[in-house]
Simulated assay, not measured.
Amino acid sequence: MPGLALPSLYAAPRAGRAFCAAAARLAVRSLYIELALYPKPGLVSLVDNGSHRDMHAGTFLRSLFALRHYFVRITRAGMDGAPFPVLRELGIAAERRMLAATGGVNTHRGAIFCLGMLCAAAGWRHGRGMAPSPAGLRRTLLAQWGHALGMHHGGAGGQSHGQRVAALHAVGGARAEMARGLPSVFELALPRLRSTLAAGRGERAARIDALFALMADLGDTNVYHRAGAAGALLVRQSAQAFLARGGTGADGWERMALDCHRRFVARRLSPGGAADLLAATCFVHQLDGMA
């Protein structure tokens, strides 16, 4: 957007620069955690390409490398109290870098949006001496940019696939999720992740349970785009069945998750929206421990 003054990291005090760099490292790490998780129904991992023929783990790694400075810049913009148009411009520039790095493949558009806004909220709070707690991050998202997020219509190219699918199938999509302060992250996935951790089943199991909780509840526009309402129903029902059996607390849970993965691949189902929100959940969980 011409005329917008984008933030310079080097104008920040040293402590501010350190926080921006640390938040960006956590954002990139959260995306890598999501990529490395397996079995992850229909999604690209380090093990296989899931339901995708146009992308693989290397594509995602190139994207991660291209996005690392974006997360620093948007954290800094949040620290400065930047209005939403500035954050949006940073996100659009990050999308261009992602597409250049991946040869035009959309690996992380949803993550650029939701993780970027969480970085901005973390920066805003740090700049005012406030801890980046989950509840605090959500309050900041809604108070500082909630109205603008509700009015957001996507990038410069008009409606995205997700927005068109959301309108067609009357599901919320990423825009509605962000406008409500990421309820799927704060009310659903994060409590599920922490419940599994509290039960002593470890981080991998906690992330699997959080992912299945998201798939069971989310109106994932990625799935609707690829497979319509019937595919979306299958994703939700499969995830609900996994959780009803006890999730990662059940004997043989890995086999059940792998069976689900194979079913999704056979039908080319890919719950990419849930994957983006899982990365956001991992980011919020890790950020909670930062001073």
Rank of each mutant, 00 (worst) to 15 (best):
92 I>D: 10
146 G>S: 11
157 G>V: 03
91 G>M: 10
117 M>C: 11
126 H>M: 13
158 G>Y: 04
101 A>M: 00
119 C>P: 09
109 R>S: 01
125 R>D: 11
126 H>N: 13
118 L>H: 07
97 R>K: 08
107 T>R: 04
139 R>N: 12
86 V>T: 14
123 G>C: 11
103 G>R: 01
129 G>F: 05
149 L>K: 02
151 M>V: 11
136 G>F: 11
127 G>S: 13
153 H>K: 12
88 R>V: 09
86 V>K: 09
86 V>F: 12
100 A>P: 05
156 A>M: 12
119 C>R: 00
130 M>G: 15
145 W>Q: 02
136 G>D: 10
98 M>Q: 03
146 G>H: 09
116 G>K: 07
154 G>W: 01
133 S>D: 13
158 G>P: 10
153 H>M: 12
115 L>K: 03
158 G>D: 02
137 L>V: 09
145 W>A: 03
85 P>T: 08
147 H>R: 15
108 H>D: 07
132 P>S: 10
123 G>P: 05
135 A>Y: 13
115 L>G: 07
111 A>Y: 03
105 V>Y: 03
102 T>I: 03
142 L>A: 07
142 L>N: 10
131 A>N: 08
103 G>H: 07
139 R>L: 15
84 F>W: 13
83 P>G: 11
147 H>S: 14
158 G>K: 05
145 W>R: 00
144 Q>C: 15
132 P>Y: 08
113 F>L: 04
132 P>W: 01
145 W>T: 10
93 A>P: 03
83 P>K: 02
127 G>E: 14
137 L>Y: 09
115 L>F: 00
128 R>V: 14
88 R>S: 14
89 E>V: 07
140 T>D: 15
102 T>Q: 01
135 A>C: 14
116 G>R: 00
127 G>D: 14
128 R>S: 14
112 I>F: 06
144 Q>W: 12
154 G>E: 05
89 E>D: 14
145 W>M: 10
98 M>A: 00
112 I>A: 06
150 G>Y: 01
111 A>I: 06
